[in-house]
Simulated assay, not measured.
Amino acid sequence: MTQPLSALPNLLLGTYTPRLDDKGRLILPAKFRTQLATGLVMTRGQEHCLYLLPLDEFQRMYDKISRASINSKQARDYMRVLMSGASQEVPDKQGRISIPPLLRKYADLERDLAVIGAGTRVEVWDLAAWEEYLANTEGAYSDTDGEVLPEISF
């Protein structure tokens, strides 16, 4: 039996469009603050966004990645890129976090942002990049079938 969403308090959902302030800080959307209040790890995401992961989720992710063979170049490369850009942050009382210059440059973040809940993580995108990504990907979303996601059916 499927749990109702109310029984999944750590699920991060929704899209928000805040702005970076002049000091490179992001005010986290109120809906995400509880899950991220005790701290988070910010790192490079795929498609040039940033991932904000609650500490326990980052630990789970790291544990899985660290089991990969050190003999695998792809695993080493992934670990290096992920970890070299990682920054542990704790939001201030206003829910703000600083985005390090390295990560702002990686994700091309200047002012207008899209902050999206992606289940177990938050993604931070340049707003124009997010809108372009979404426009280019919505068709593929509609075309996704049971072979790609066999457990999903509507």
Rank of each mutant, 00 (worst) to 15 (best):
N71H: 12
N71F: 14
S72E: 06
S72Y: 04
S72A: 02
S72T: 00
K73F: 11
K73C: 01
Q74R: 08
Q74E: 13
Q74G: 08
D77S: 10
Y78G: 01
Y78W: 14
R80P: 03
R80L: 00
V81C: 05
L82F: 08
L82R: 00
M83G: 05
M83I: 09
M83S: 13
M83E: 06
S84Q: 06
G85H: 03
A86I: 02
A86V: 00
E89I: 11
E89P: 00
E89C: 11
E89A: 12
V90W: 03
V90K: 08
V90N: 04
V90A: 07
P91Q: 03
P91H: 01
D92M: 05
K93T: 10
K93M: 11
Q94D: 12
G95H: 07
G95L: 08
R96Y: 05
I97Q: 01
I97N: 05
I97T: 04
I97W: 02
S98P: 00
S98L: 14
S98E: 13
I99Q: 07
P100C: 07
P101R: 07
P101W: 07
L102S: 15
L102K: 14
R104K: 15
R104Y: 09
R104D: 10
R104A: 13
R104N: 10
K105W: 11
K105D: 15
D108T: 15
L109S: 12
L109H: 13
L109Q: 11
L109W: 11
E110F: 14
E110D: 15
E110Y: 14
